[in-house]
Amino acid sequence: MHVDVIVLAGGRSSRLDGVAKASLVVGSTTLLQRAVEAGRGAVAVGEGGSPGTGGRVVVVGPDDETTALGDTLRDPRASSCAVLRTREAPPFGGPAAGIAAGLAALSGPPAPAAAGPAAARAPLVAVIACDHPRVDRALPAVLAAVLRDGADESIDAWAARGRDDRLQPLLAVYRRAALDRRVAAVRRERAHGLDGASMRTLTEGLTFAPVPVPTVDTADIDTWADAARFDATPPTASVAAGDHPTHSGGAR
């Protein structure tokens, strides 16, 4: 399986008093680190558990040092998976605008280190929001469903769904052609294009295959009460300074 990954990290975090969600620390890592590492794991998935054909990860959001993302990029495993950075236009344009920016970045020429077959445009794109603290559990379940049902061309996307019956379009894997088609359609149909467009608008008409996962694995962090449920804390001064320890497994 060949999949690229878009990690969305560009929200305002208004209900967290402006503290960037991406910078919250769960266990020993920031939420953005956890999302990037989940994405890195996704590009390595192949048939029957064999290695995948590679892919790229793009982080859409501000270049915020408090996320300690540099620690993840300095991990020796980073050399096997290119991690790009980009920003939605205009900033804070919402998740649909972020996805469009991510697709554009993934469509550009690969860096020299990423040259080769794995750098080609992947037919599948995983989209994950950085505010899901258990993305490392939910995303593998979605990928397993893609491996199982990927030959069914009537399916445009696979998305996690908890027992609360809520489909999570930001914990999902899409066929790139379907996403490209919807991005182009929204640009044509809305005066402001993707700016401020909802995920409902972007995914209108797409056929989703729900992937059952534990509801807690689909939860996101929007408020301090949500953060408390996952023992998520604001970044410390050492994290902001880039002295955060490199993560190698994830808090469970």
Rank of each mutant, 00 (worst) to 15 (best):
L8P: 09
P91Q: 02
A78D: 00
P123H: 00
D64E: 00
A118R: 15
P133Y: 04
A126C: 07
V146A: 03
H244K: 04
L206W: 07
H2I: 05
G98P: 08
G93Q: 01
T29F: 14
Q33H: 11
D75L: 09
P76K: 03
L69K: 02
A122I: 11
G162S: 12
L167W: 08
D165L: 15
D243K: 14
V142A: 02
V3L: 05
I128W: 07
S238M: 13
D136S: 11
V36G: 03
A219W: 09
V213P: 15
K21A: 13
A78P: 04
V186C: 03
T246G: 13
T218A: 09
V216A: 08
G18V: 13
P140H: 00
G196Y: 03
T29M: 15
W158H: 06
E189C: 05
V142I: 09
A68F: 06
R182E: 05
D231M: 06
E204M: 09
D222S: 08
A138W: 07
D63F: 05
G242R: 04
V183N: 02
G250A: 11
V213H: 07
G11I: 09
D243I: 10
A172E: 01
V59I: 04
R229C: 12
I128V: 15
D222K: 10
D220G: 13
G49Y: 06
P90E: 00
D220N: 12
P76W: 05
L24H: 06
K21G: 10
A237Y: 13
A104T: 10
G54W: 06
V186R: 01
P133Q: 03
H132M: 05
T66K: 03
G11K: 04
R161K: 14
R163T: 15
L24W: 09
V57N: 03
T66Y: 02
D164P: 14
G49T: 11
A151M: 11
T201N: 00
Q168G: 15
A145T: 15
K21C: 07
H244P: 02
R188I: 09
L139N: 05
A138D: 08
R200D: 13
R190V: 10
T67E: 01
G11A: 12
A126T: 03
D136K: 02
V127S: 04
T203Y: 08
D152A: 14
V83S: 00
I99D: 00
A197D: 00
L170I: 08
R163L: 14
R161L: 15
F92I: 06
H247V: 15
R87A: 12
Y174L: 10
R188C: 05
R77T: 12
L106I: 06
G61D: 01
V142Y: 05
Y174D: 00
L69R: 01
A96C: 08
D17S: 14
V57K: 02
A219T: 10
R12L: 12
P169T: 12
A159R: 02
R229D: 07
F208H: 06
